[in-house]
Amino acid sequence: MGKKSYGSPYFVWMSIFIIVPMFLVLYYAFTIQTDQGMVFSLDNIKRIAEPLYIKVFVRSLVLALESTAICLLIAYPAAMILADKKFSKSTTFLVMIVLPMWMNFLLRTYSWLSLLENNGLINKLVISLGFERMQLMYNEGAVVLGMVYNFLPFMILPIYSVLVKIDNNVIEAARDLGCTSFGVFKKITVPLSLPGVLSGITMVFMPAISTFIISRLLSGGKVSLIGNVIEQQFLVLGDWGFGSALSLVLMVFILISMAFINKGSSGYEGGIL
């Protein structure tokens, strides 16, 4: 009975709910139903190579990257302000960032509908000010907006927690030695905050590339992401084979991007995996 046995409940949990389902996905992806039962086949995997599904994958990737980039652009300055020792209201602001997450994310996405619709609150305001009605929903822009809104806290919090731990003496030393404030930012703050940035990127990118409900609601079913196609295969068409094959490719996609990110983070303390 070493310390290792303390990990056994987690190990059991992981095997039942992670390892076994993964093998099921693998199994369904490489088999098809025939009159003789399930037989090995590459048909499902081959079908993904059709231009249509490649297009869906590319679209999902582009939108996820866009959302991640926008999240980073907003989150980094925000985290810097929050981590600033001279900023006294940081607790209040942190609570305000976390607070919406106490509400169900579906509800929050639904409430965007009533804001963005053609006859929604924003358009009503715009029209009452004498401008033309804008189509804010039913397009890719709305999907990106929904992702940024929902995943932004996952970018701010890791960056903030890294920034707040940077030793002020390091920065003061740099200033004493005549470094400009931009130099301090470039040479000290950014490199030291990189682990937070990388885990923020992972935490935004992964849900963004696999989401289906944000695209479903905010594009009115017009923008299909890979998550939507997978959902449709499982819940509407009952084609578990093709659905699993798509899920498998999505997992490979995510693994590759994680490998990229981890490669970038090696050499700094605290990677993601």
Partner: peptide, 19 residues
Amino acid sequence: LVLGYVVDEVRDKMVNEEA
């Protein structure tokens, strides 16, 4: 040409003159 593909939401959207 299509604004959206919907099922149960269609009624509210038409009543609110979304489409």
